[in-house]
Design a protein around this nucleic acid. Structure first.
Length: 1064
RNA sequence: GGGCCUAUAGCUCAGCACGGUUAGAGCGCUUCCCUGAUAAGGAAGAGGUCACUGGUUCAAGUCCAGUUAGGCCCA
């Protein structure tokens, strides 16, 4: 133990201004390049690869962005401390419709026509500027929250190198024949002349309740068992639709294979409907026959309109999507206008009949409705059906229907040409990759995500938009396609050097070349690609693979990643696109472990959104409470898998319960170690030579045991990405440390006991290291104040420290159980005191304890209990006077009884309950077994099968719980009463000292005068005890004479005492 | 319409992979207590049909099936 000036603790301020502390630490990290050093320290070590899922830089960051970024920071920090090299390259997702929409609003334009009028080059430049602006906001948040990720070399999906990497990968897919053009049913706005994306359909107010016609149409059968002649139909299918305009394009009627269909007649006609929906027919219908849907396949019928040519169609098709929730169970099929219709139609080889022009009107050549807008044609068509006797019933029907979010025109679902990746071709590979991926929580793997893979559909890759990676396919007039893998390749084809070309629209659209097949000029197809494909390509595209100079060296060892993490809304977004692109290009998914977080909600339990005005700004939140509290909340409060509400109140609680308690414990340590001039004797940070000797004091040993237990369990929790458990472990430990260990050991710290300092110091050092990934700021502060100044070899930052080693020898389960028992007894004693209204400061003569294991409890711990309860003597109930003092009660232990007796448990239990308790307890004490009588038969029970509790008889204050009892002897002698008064005086003096602003180490002189004989007697009797406690060098009986400088006067009315004191 | 998740105190959440008879913690409230670090801590109290209905079992917040409500993703 040495106390030299160069090895002194820096005092920790227990009332620390946490945001201010954050700023100091940020400056420290910056100044000393700690992040760089942490990467340097692990250079060449085994890798642990993390991929940063790029945030879409299309808006300002919200509190929910902090969530994933906390997880993305915690585990890389942990793995770095464990000695692995964790590269952390930031990235930004720059493309996509979300950016375009924001820019449209910003520019006050709307729709593709206006964008093109504005100019694609200018529009894309505005998109780029918008992205760059938001990147700055994200950068600020990232730094403020202490997320260590290298933004100086961040990848951006809009950079030419990135785009060329994406092109390269698309060409791989194209060459495998998996990148193809096909039709896709898209929501389409006829006024804007454009398809809408899913994202646009998700805009508020898109769905609106409208009244549409609801028509039941007869479609007479022309083949099958119910077919009639052309003039006298025997039976008709009854088909329901809310979009009569699509009946013009009817090519089939779908039924469900498993549903029962009824043939019903009312005497004048015969109709077919799903049996479950017979009520739609009304009264007086009689069922004559039944068919299963599967048996009706390919029966033909007469289509409702004969306005456009259709061939090889108009028969019954079978598909499981048909429901009997509403309608008739017979679903009209128009493949041009419905996704299911299209899919089913494709399976049957049915034609796609589309008489609607891009402006939403019927082709002028169509009789009856030519030139009419699709939606308004309904009326005329329904009237025509009615006139021809085909309308069974026509009503109006209110339902929600999507509208264009820009112009409010009703949308139509429309078959449009689109580019697809045939992911269905690699479905089995995707499932195999998923099966070897570890999901947190595991339910996602076969649940939400597995389900999605099993129902995989081809990836609709193209978008008819502007701000995105252009699809690198050129097409000539003959329809020959060329897929281009880089600008260099494009330059070769075009015969000029294009290395400096911005590979965005419109510039890339200007490049044409002669088709290599036919020589005709080839132009780029107009589409850009889904931005999800960009982000799914990041494992290789972030390095510009394979073109950039060192891309191969950077990429190969960093594939696949050990860890990715995003919120659950990425299941079908990034989690899928990463796995799909990786599997397509490298036959291997790009990640091994994926942590999938629940959403962060506003304090009102709703999703944060600008519209609701409940967005919690992350930087002000952090500036109010400090980054660590916000980080802790995100990681440890509640289950990260489920949605959580965040607000100031919840964060403030973290500050109080965890952060300040931890900081205060460190402050306590520096305060008293400083006063005692204590410093650790050696370089404990690298002491792994068999571990230090075990401490001798029981609480020191306990603390060491609990510290290493925590270290062991926390390590395990980190490894399993279980931050909730981690938080529970650390939170509980910090509470135990402060409110049991420090509380019980204070006298030893006041006295300068080196063993106590050593114990607390080791714990703080380990605790600080193990909390560092989670709360990097306060731990750094404590490291700089408590660890580094006194340990010569300590790293300059806790984040450069190695993960501490668990000393398994130190973990003592028996001791833990003993301390737990002692603490339970203390709790019971306090309850008994409260019950009897005797305050703790009043010493009591004796307490009796009835608890299993009490007799074996080490004397040292029994002393702790006695002191904590302020009783002079502590005894077991048995030793205190035998059974005359004690009343027993017994309870059956169902858990153990159930195991042995199963069905008979209740009878045995009843026998136990009705037995004489004292008798049973006596048997158990003597033999460890007891006999009870069950239906006249003796049954022998083991001690573990009966819960015995004992409580003392009258005259005692008693508390018991779970079979354990503490009884206090309430007889207060005059002597005890005076000792109580002395304690009261001590407390009052301490408070007065504190109020007078004295330091805890200041010695004082005290004068006193009393109007109360008891107080005077108590003070005289306990003079030296009182003086010791309040650090008084002298206690004068009587008022101070003359005018002493710096004197404080205090009146203790409740004990009739006046005191004066001053520091000496 | 499909899939998944959630439902336990006024509020925020544990507990359920391993069923056991007084269902816990924190916040808030009331009353006390403790305090040479603490913005802390402790005791007691009020506050629960563990969403609902059935089933399995000697025994069900806990396992099973279904229902309802909310959320997420996809239609």
């Amino acid at each position: 133990m040495t106390a030299s000036s160069d090895r002194a603790f820096r005092p920790v301020d227990p009332h620390g201004d946490l945001p201010g502390l954050d700023r100091e630490i940020l400056a420290f990290w910056h100044e000393h390049a700690i992040f760089d050093k942490s990467l340097g320290r692990t250079e060449g070590a085994s890798r642990w690869t993390f991929y940063e899922g790029p945030p879409t830089a299309n808006g300002m960051p919200g509190a929910h962005h902090v969530e994933a970024r906390v997880f993305k920071d915690v585990f890389p920090r942990f793995q770095t401390m464990r000695g692995r090299h964790v590269e952390r390259k930031a990235g930004w997702d720059c493309h996509g419709l979300a950016v375009e929409v924001a820019v449209e609003k910003e520019l006050g334009i709307s729709g593709k026509r206006e964008i093109e009028d504005y100019g694609v080059a200018a529009f894309n430049a505005a998109c780029r500027a918008s992205v760059e602006r938001h990147v700055d906001a994200f950068t600020e948040l990232t730094e403020r929250m202490g997320y260590w990720v290298d933004m100086s070399q961040a990848y951006r999906t809009m950079d030419p190198a990135y785009i060329q990497s994406v092109w390269w990968s698309l060409k791989q897919i194209y060459d495998k024949g998996l990148l193809v053009r096909d039709y896709r049913i898209s929501p389409y706005c006829p006024r804007c002349g454009t398809a809408l994306s899913d994202h646009e359909l998700g805009q508020p107010d898109v769905y609106e309740t409208v009244a549409d016609p609801s028509v039941y149409v007869r479609m007479p059968l022309t083949s099958g068992p119910l077919a009639g002649g052309t003039d006298s139909p025997r039976a008709a299918l009854l088909v329901w639709t809310t979009t009569p305009w699509t009946l013009v394009s009817n090519v089939a009627v779908a039924v469900h294979p498993e549903v029962e269909y009824a043939v019903a007649t009312n005497g004048s006609e015969t109709l077919v409907v799903a049996e479950a929906l017979l009520p739609v027919l009304g009264e007086d219908w009689r069922v004559t026959e039944r068919f299963r849907g599967a048996d009706m396949e390919r029966w033909t019928y007469t289509r409702p309109f004969d306005l456009v040519p259709v061939e090889n169609a108009n028969y019954i098709v079978v598909d499981e999507y048909v429901s009997t929730e509403d309608g008739t169970g017979l679903v009209h099929q128009a493949p041009a206008f419905g996704e299911d219709d299209y899919r089913v139609g494709r399976a049957y080889g049915l034609p796609v009949v589309n008489p609607i022009l891009p402006d939403g009107t019927f082709d002028p050549s169509v009789p009856l409705v030519g030139g009419e807008f699709f939606k308004t044609a309904d009326q005329r068509l329904v009237a025509d059906l009615d006139a021809r006797g085909l309308l069974f019933r026509g009503e109006t029907y209110e339902h929600s229907y999507p509208h264009c979010w820009r112009c409010h025109t009703p949308l139509l679902y429309y078959a449009l040409p689109s580019w697809f990746i045939r992911t269905t071709a690699i479905k089995d590979e995707l499932l195999a990759e998923n099966s070897r991926t570890t999901w947190y929580p595991h339910t996602i793997k076969n649940g939400r995500y597995g389900e999605w893979l099993r129902n995989n559909v081809d990836w609709a890759l193209s978008r008819n938009r502007y701000w995105g990676t252009p699809l690198p396919i050129w097409e000539c007039e003959q329809g020959h396609l060329t897929c281009v893998g880089s600008l260099a390749e494009l330059g070769d084809l075009a015969g000029t050097n294009l290395d400096a070309l911005d590979p965005h629209r419109p510039f890339v659209d200007d490049i044409t070349f002669g088709c290599s097949t036919c020589g005709e000029p080839a132009r780029r197809v107009p589409e850009v690609i889904d931005a999800w494909y960009d982000s799914g390509s990041m494992p290789f595209a972030q390095w510009g693979y394979p073109y950039a100079p060192d891309a191969k060296e950077r990429f190969e060892p960093a594939y696949p990643a050990q860890f990715i993490c995003e919120a659950i809304d990425q299941t079908r977004g990034w989690f899928y696109s990463l796995m799909a692109v990786g599997t397509l290009i490298f036959d291997r998914s790009s990640y091994e472990n994926v942590v999938c977080l629940g959403l962060i909600l506003a304090e009102d339990g709703r999703k944060m959104s600008k519209h609701l005005g409940n967005v919690l700004e992350p930087i002000p939140l952090i500036d109010r409470h400090g980054a660590d509290a916000v980080r802790w909340f995100m990681a440890c409060s509640g289950s990260p898998w489920s949605a959580r509400r965040v607000g100031d109140a919840t964060i403030q609680e973290v500050v109080r319960k965890v952060i300040l308690t931890y900081l205060n414990t460190a402050a306590f340590h520096t305060l008293y170690a400083g006063l005692a001039g204590w410093a650790p004797s050696g370089d404990t940070t690298s002491d792994d030579s068999g571990g230090p000797a075990q401490p001798s004091a029981v609480l020191d040993r306990w603390l060491r045991s609990e510290t290493h237990r925590l270290l062991r369990d926390a390590e395990d929790a980190y490894e399993r990405f279980d931050t909730q458990r981690l938080g529970q472990l650390i939170g509980q430990f910090v509470d135990d440390l402060s409110n049991w260990y420090v509380r019980r050991s204070r006298r030893r710290f006041w006295a300068g006991d080196p063993a106590a300092f050593a114990a607390l110091h080791e714990t703080l050092e380990l605790l600080t290291a193990l909390m560092a990934p989670l709360t990097p700021f306060v731990t750094e502060h404590v490291w700089q104040h408590v660890v580094r100044p006194v340990a010569a070899g300590a790293p300059e930052s806790v984040h450069l420290a190695a993960w501490p080693k668990v000393d398994a020898q130190a973990i003592d389960d028996g001791l833990a159980a003993d301390v737990t028992l002692a603490r339970r007894v203390v709790e019971l004693g306090r309850a008994a005191r409260a019950e009897a209204k005797v305050r703790t400061r009043q010493p009591l003569r004796q307490a009796l304890v009835g608890a299993a294991g009490w007799a074996e409890l080490p004397e040292e711990l029994r002393r702790e209990v006695a002191e904590e309860l302020n009783v002079l003597e502590l005894k077991g109930l048995g030793e205190a006077g035998g059974d005359s003092l004690v009343e027993y009660s017994v309870k059956p232990n169902f858990r153990t009884l159930g195991k042995r007796f199963g069905k008979d448990t209740p009878r045995i239990a009843a026998a136990v309950s009705s037995a004489e308790p004292a008798e049973l307890a006596g048997q158990l004490r003597q033999d460890g077994q007891a006999k009870v009588s069950v239906d006249g038969q003796d049954v022998t029970l083991e001690a573990a099968e009966i819960i015995v509790s004992e409580r003392p008889r009258e005259g005692w204050a008693v508390a018991n719980a779970q079979g354990e009892t503490v009884a206090l002897n309430l007889t207060i002698t005059e002597e005890l009463r005076r000792a109580g008064i002395a304690r009261e005086i001590i407390r009052l003096l301490q408070e007065a000292r504190k109020n007078a602003g004295l330091q805890v180490s200041d010695r004082i002189s005290v004068w006193w005068s009393s109007t109360d004989d008891d107080a005077a007697a108590a003070l005289r009797e306990h003079q030296s005890f009182v003086a010791d406690e309040v650090l008084a060098v002298a206690l004068h009986d009587g008022e101070p004479v003359g005018s002493e400088p710096g004197l404080t006067r205090a009146e203790f009315a409740n004990v009739g005492l006046t005191v004066w004191f001053r520091a000496t």
